[in-house]
Amino acid sequence: MIFDVLTLFPGLFASPFADSILGKAVDRGLIRIGVHNLRDWAEGRHKVTDDTPYGGGEGMVLKPEPVARALADLKSGHPTSKVLLMTPQGKPFRQAVALDLAAEEGLIFVCGRYEGVDERVRALVDEELSLGDFVLTGGELAAMAMIDAIARLLPGVLGNRDSSLSDSHADGLLEYPQYTRPAEFMGMRVPEVLLSGNHAAISAWRRREQLRRTLQRRPDLLEQAELDARDRVMLEELRRELAADPE
């Protein structure tokens, strides 16, 4: 997949995509990340990309012309790429959104800055996305997080192709607890079922713990999660347990 990023601060992207899993994916040609300086499409000696807002107010607004020229150039090279605007006003970025975007051939991330982009830029993008209900100094960190979340879903990027299937949110629930050696640490033991070698029992325990953890930490997710009859029985049992012993 081709990831293109349009930003005023391309240097921010050097380290996050040079190391670890994404760095290896780039080296192996599984993904391509192009970071583009918006000023390259600005005109005039000073390459101005922002201006004061009409009607007054604090801060500066990114001008529409450089963004429009940049998107036209990037789309000419990759016409099927989907254009995404990073904005706190956008649709919340979720795992389901990452899965949908992982099916695209290419993505172009437009990183807002200052007071945001000129409203007319919105007519040039396919989707507006938000990392959460908070405001960052710019869209760069949001774009990095989204690229990471999407890239790890692509074939070959993770060492184990099934790793992402058990992630939190992969099936609408939080992930079950994970343990490794030693079997006992500071008086805390790994649950015996995980040492039993009984794969059916381990699978049942993990599903129950997924439901327990989601019920305790993110009960809102249960409203949209796909639960079968067995899940619902376990969930009712867990509700009774938690009601009897909230701790």
Rank of each mutant, 00 (worst) to 15 (best):
Gly159Thr: 04
Pro191Cys: 08
Leu158Trp: 10
Pro155His: 06
Ala183Val: 14
Asp167Leu: 07
Asn160Gly: 01
Met186His: 14
His169Gln: 03
Pro182Ala: 01
Pro191Phe: 10
Ser163Asp: 13
Thr180Met: 03
Ser168Gly: 14
Glu184His: 07
Val157Gln: 10
Ser163Trp: 01
Ser168His: 02
Asp162Trp: 03
Gly172Cys: 05
Leu165Phe: 11
Pro155Phe: 03
Pro177Leu: 08
Glu184Tyr: 01
Ala170Ile: 10
Glu175Ile: 00
Asp167Val: 02
Ser166Tyr: 04
Gly159Phe: 03
Ser168Arg: 01
Glu175Lys: 00
Glu192Lys: 13
Tyr176Thr: 02
Met188Asn: 10
Ser164Val: 11
Asn160Cys: 04
Gly172Ile: 05
Ala183Trp: 12
Pro191Met: 06
Tyr176Glu: 12
His169Phe: 15
Asp171Glu: 14
Leu165Ala: 15
Gly159Ser: 07
Gly172Asn: 05
Pro155Thr: 09
Tyr176Gln: 11
Gly172Tyr: 08
Val157Ile: 09
Asn160Arg: 14
Ser163Asn: 01
Phe185Ala: 09
Glu192Ser: 14
Glu192Arg: 12
Val157Asn: 09
Glu184Ile: 13
Gln178Lys: 12
His169Met: 02
Tyr176Arg: 11
His169Ile: 00
Asp162Leu: 07
Glu175Gly: 04
Arg181Thr: 03
Pro182Thr: 01
